[in-house]
């Protein structure tokens, strides 16, 4: 009896030790992401506050959404006084990509992870944390994922707070210049992928062409930016799926 108790206790201690190790491992791997998020979140804070969104709401958006493209688009639509339906649909369509990442991670995490832990770690899935997690060779544990997420989460929140609060003090030239930060980050995400895969390149070019088309062609340039992104994405991704279907093991 005593022996069994001792063994149970020992196993428990071991689990905790491994948990702490995984957490630390994840935390260090998340640090570069955290620092990378600060300037982009800074730009978001500025963009939101300049558009008339209160400072605390800008921070609230970052802490509840934790996504770049979606909340930039969402905040832009709030500023433009768009309808709630338009905001919801646009943000959702932009975030559809997370379904694939979430799906992919569901095959990567330890099999017995309880639903509660899955729901908590799901909140921290971003393009970058997903990329790091899916490149791990071992199975992903809950402590690892928590460690990976915590740095980027606070980097994103802190950057937003700084940007939102410093807007009034920052010279206009720097405010203007920071406007390009997020787009530059997007370019850093799509260019390497387009270099490696012809299919990704074609999809990107089709999406860009459609987006420019809608922006500059008379009459149809009345359609709002949100819907343009939705239409361009659906057409370009469908073309990708039809002409470059991916084989079973490629995802």
């Amino acid at each position: 009896m005593n022996n069994l108790q001792y063994q149970t206790k020992n196993k428990y201690t071991q689990e905790i030790t491994e948990g702490i190790k995984d957490f630390k491992d994840g935390f260090y791997k998340g640090l570069p992401i955290a620092f990378g998020y600060i300037p982009v979140a800074f730009a978001f804070g500025i963009m939101a506050v300049k558009g008339g969104i209160p400072v605390w709401i800008a921070i609230l958006i970052s802490m509840t959404n934790l996504t770049s493209a979606g909340q930039f688009a969402g905040a832009g639509l709030i500023i433009a006084n768009a309808t709630l339906l338009e905001i919801t649909v646009t943000t959702f369509v932009i975030n559809i990509r997370y379904m694939l990442m979430s799906l992919s991670l569901s095959q990567k995490i330890v099999e017995r992870m309880p639903g509660v832990q899955r729901s908590i770690m799901a909140f921290g899935i971003t393009d970058e944390t997903f990329a790091v997690a899916s490149l791990e060779e071992k199975e992903i544990t809950f402590p690892f994922m928590m460690g990976l997420i915590i740095g980027p989460y606070w980097g994103w929140a802190l950057g937003t707070a700084l940007g939102a609060m410093l807007t009034t003090f920052l010279p206009e030239i720097w405010q203007d210049s920071l406007g390009i930060a997020l787009y530059a980050m997007f370019i850093a995400l799509i260019v390497p992928a387009s270099k490696k895969s012809k299919a990704a390149f074609v999809v990107v070019i089709v999406a860009i062409s459609l987006s420019c088309f809608f922006r500059w062609l008379p009459c149809i340039n009345q359609i709002s930016q949100g819907w343009v992104i939705i239409i361009a994405t659906i057409i370009a991704s469908t073309i990708g799926a039809v002409f470059f279907p991916r084989s079973e093991d490629e995802i």
Partner: peptide
């Protein structure tokens, strides 16, 4: 495949011409 290409399409359409 559709889901796989979605991020590229979204990011492309969001970046140009807005940048």
């Amino acid at each position: 495949s559709f889901l796989y290409y979605t991020p590229y399409a979204v990011l492309g359409a969001m970046t140009f011409p807005s940048i």
